[in-house]
Simulated assay, not measured.
Amino acid sequence: MNRQVAIALMGLTFASLAACSATMASDRSYSLGRGVVNYDELRRAGDKCKADGGVLQAKQDGGDPAQLSNYTCVIPKGD
């Protein structure tokens, strides 16, 4: 039974990674990384994201809005 559980968990992990990579707008989009959100950090990240041609967005999966990892710079695919 433990082997079946391990195989099921591994399958879920691979499915999650595939879904995560499929939902990114492009390979240029990026997460803000680790750390606690503060005004200055979000401002800098937003300015950098805008300069890169993107828009800063909070993830919609119910993550912790106090963590930088909950925010993504979404850069639309170019031609």
Results as ranks from 00 to 15, higher is better:
residue 1 M to F: 14
residue 1 M to R: 10
residue 2 N to A: 05
residue 2 N to F: 01
residue 3 R to Q: 04
residue 3 R to I: 00
residue 4 Q to R: 02
residue 4 Q to L: 06
residue 5 V to S: 04
residue 5 V to K: 09
residue 8 A to Y: 12
residue 8 A to W: 14
residue 10 M to A: 14
residue 10 M to Y: 06
residue 11 G to A: 11
residue 11 G to R: 01
residue 12 L to W: 13
residue 12 L to G: 12
residue 13 T to R: 03
residue 13 T to Q: 03
residue 14 F to L: 15
residue 15 A to N: 02
residue 15 A to P: 02
residue 16 S to D: 06
residue 17 L to W: 10
residue 17 L to K: 04
residue 17 L to H: 04
residue 17 L to D: 04
residue 17 L to F: 14
residue 19 A to Q: 11
residue 19 A to M: 14
residue 19 A to H: 07
residue 20 C to L: 13
residue 21 S to H: 09
residue 22 A to V: 06
residue 22 A to S: 10
residue 22 A to K: 10
residue 22 A to G: 06
residue 23 T to L: 08
residue 24 M to A: 09
residue 24 M to Y: 10
residue 24 M to N: 07
residue 25 A to D: 07
residue 26 S to F: 12
residue 26 S to G: 08
residue 26 S to Q: 09
residue 27 D to C: 02
residue 27 D to G: 09
residue 27 D to F: 06
residue 28 R to Q: 14
residue 29 S to M: 05
residue 31 S to T: 08
residue 33 G to I: 10
residue 34 R to Q: 14
residue 34 R to V: 05
residue 35 G to Y: 03
residue 35 G to W: 01
residue 36 V to Q: 12
residue 37 V to N: 00
residue 37 V to S: 01
residue 38 N to V: 00
residue 38 N to Y: 00
residue 39 Y to P: 00
residue 40 D to K: 08
residue 40 D to T: 07
residue 41 E to C: 00
residue 41 E to Q: 05
residue 42 L to W: 02
residue 42 L to E: 01
residue 46 G to R: 01
residue 47 D to P: 00
residue 47 D to F: 09
residue 47 D to V: 08
residue 47 D to S: 11
residue 48 K to W: 00
residue 48 K to S: 04
residue 48 K to Y: 02
residue 48 K to P: 00
residue 49 C to E: 03
residue 49 C to V: 03
residue 49 C to D: 02
residue 49 C to Q: 03
residue 50 K to S: 11
residue 50 K to I: 01
residue 51 A to H: 04
residue 51 A to F: 05
residue 51 A to E: 08
residue 52 D to F: 03
residue 52 D to C: 05
residue 52 D to I: 05
residue 52 D to T: 02
residue 53 G to E: 07
residue 53 G to S: 09
residue 54 G to I: 00
residue 54 G to E: 01
residue 55 V to P: 00
residue 55 V to T: 15
residue 56 L to F: 10
residue 57 Q to V: 15
residue 58 A to W: 03
residue 58 A to P: 06
residue 58 A to M: 11
residue 58 A to D: 03
residue 59 K to M: 14
residue 59 K to E: 14
residue 59 K to G: 15
residue 59 K to D: 13
residue 60 Q to D: 15
residue 60 Q to R: 14
residue 61 D to F: 10
residue 62 G to H: 11
residue 63 G to S: 15
residue 65 P to C: 10
residue 66 A to C: 01
residue 66 A to L: 12
residue 66 A to T: 14
residue 67 Q to T: 03
residue 67 Q to A: 12
residue 68 L to C: 09
residue 69 S to T: 14
residue 69 S to G: 14
residue 69 S to W: 14
residue 69 S to N: 15
residue 70 N to V: 03
residue 71 Y to R: 05
residue 71 Y to M: 10
residue 71 Y to A: 04
residue 71 Y to Q: 04
residue 71 Y to I: 05
residue 71 Y to T: 01
residue 72 T to Y: 13
residue 72 T to Q: 13
residue 72 T to A: 09
residue 72 T to H: 13
residue 72 T to D: 12
residue 72 T to N: 12
residue 73 C to N: 08
residue 73 C to H: 11
residue 73 C to W: 08
residue 74 V to W: 03
residue 74 V to F: 05
residue 76 P to N: 08
residue 77 K to V: 13
residue 77 K to C: 05
residue 77 K to Y: 05
residue 78 G to I: 11
residue 79 D to H: 13
residue 79 D to L: 13
